[in-house]
Write a protein that binds this DNA or RNA. Structure first.
Lengths: 232, 232
DNA sequence: TTGAGAAAACTGGTTAACCAGATTGGTTAT
DNA sequence: ATAACCAATCTGGTTAACCAGTTTTCTCAA
């Protein structure tokens, strides 16, 4: 399931189906563990293709609200009807994140991953971060574009944080960040040179296992982005 | 696409396909914008079903590395080969988040959403939070289980934070948290009664638009969970 | 009436055929 | 030589048929 990469038409259909499933659960008073009507039945009742039904169910499965068991059926997850209604409402309301949300979340995550990396990094992690840093520096010094190497430096830190959720979330927001960076031309050459020092500072803090300093240096690194984000 | 809800067999196949796609991109020196071989071709070459190929491509599409265009082809996204290799490596390495990662991430997100909610909440947001709080209190006072109402209170705050990414991430980690909560019996009745006061404090801080206080009260609310998480 | 057992119906998952639009290559007219 | 056209091919997306288990229903003996 893609989070929000559906075209508008399919998107609307899916929302309608999810609403319909919610209404059906409420109307039939289905409780946790109860079985939903079959995919075929639902596709008839809602007058959509079975594929659409499957997509919607998979989305709700992704958020832990339903569970499909092969050759048996789809069941309401072990979560109360109240929470289920609340979560479905939230899921339906979810919208494509704006750039500001992405940046805000990225900064939040990166300050934490820097902290955690300083505490938990292994020697291998440190080595990987160093290599990413060197690759970045070399590109910048040669006057080449270093967006990719910049990114990989930050992902190396996320990896070293040893937190699987944050690592995943970093990967999820990365494409959106990159796209918008290029769209709005947030970076420029001056920043790139300044970036070498900032990256080096972050690396040094993680190497010396100083979480507070690592967070501080990461914060400094994001200062311009932070301002850009909050001054428009 | 599900993040990590595939059975092991399919999971391994998908990882192999993603690796193979990466190798193919490297071997053929495909650059951003270049077209990948067709799904049918890949399914022959890798000796897997076309459905498997489609799933793998959709996953890489989800992370912004590929782009499928109907009736035309699948293209390498506008991201350099270096970043692409790095990100694929990370994606392949991603593992099911452990409970500690989930809790750590939840606390990070909730401290921020409380802050942001205090700043940005509308009157409607405040009203919704209040209703969630009242529903929670009533359940606890009646001695009933209030896990769902607890959850909805926190989701109401996430909604009021007006940050779409964080809201999404809260919804993503919620099922894992709930499951593990029940598995490890993190909550007990005493906490529930204490929770009323803590929730009320958080609500009051958000109402009076005091972000610092909101964060503080949320931190206090998570104190036990925090300790549970870091003392094992 | 009840129990077991078998067969029919139904389940989510998978596969292969089909679709409409895009692309390509060749042909022809200018 | 080149531009225009058209048909054959190829594309990702969609649909319908099929599959292997599960669940229900029916049958018939005890």
């Amino acid at each position: 399931m893609k989070l929000e990469i559906l075209n508008n038409e399919n998107h609307d259909i899916q929302k309608k189906i999810i609403s319909a499933i919610r209404d059906l659960i409420n109307h039939k008073n289905l409780e946790p563990g109860d079985k939903l009507p079959s995919e075929r039945t639902l596709s008839e009742k809602f007058e959509v293709s079975r594929g659409n039904i499957r997509e919607a169910i998979q989305k709700l499965e992704f958020y832990g609200l339903l569970e499909s068991i092969p050759q048996s059926g789809t069941f309401v997850a072990n979560i109360g009807i109240t929470a289920l209604n609340g979560m479905i409402e939230d899921i339906l309301r979810l919208e494509e994140p704006d750039f500001k949300s992405l940046v805000e979340t990225r900064i939040l995550l990166e300050l934490k991953t820097a902290q955690l990396a300083a505490i938990r990094r292994t020697e291998e992690d440190l080595q990987a971060i160093k290599e990413a840093l060197d690759a970045y520096s070399e590109k910048v010094i040669n006057g080449e574009d270093a967006v990719q190497e910049d990114l990989l430096f930050h992902l190396a830190i996320a990896k070293a944080s040893r937190n699987s959720s944050m690592n995943t979330f970093m990967l999820i927001i990365t494409p959106g960040i990159i796209t918008n960076f290029e769209k709005y031309h947030v970076c420029d050459k001056n920043q790139a040179f300044l970036g070498i020092q900032e990256h080096t500072d972050i690396y040094a803090a993680i190497r010396s296992q100083d979480p507070k300093l690592a967070k501080e240096k990461m914060k400094a690194h994001f200062k311009i982005l932070y301002q850009y984000c909050y001054n428009q």
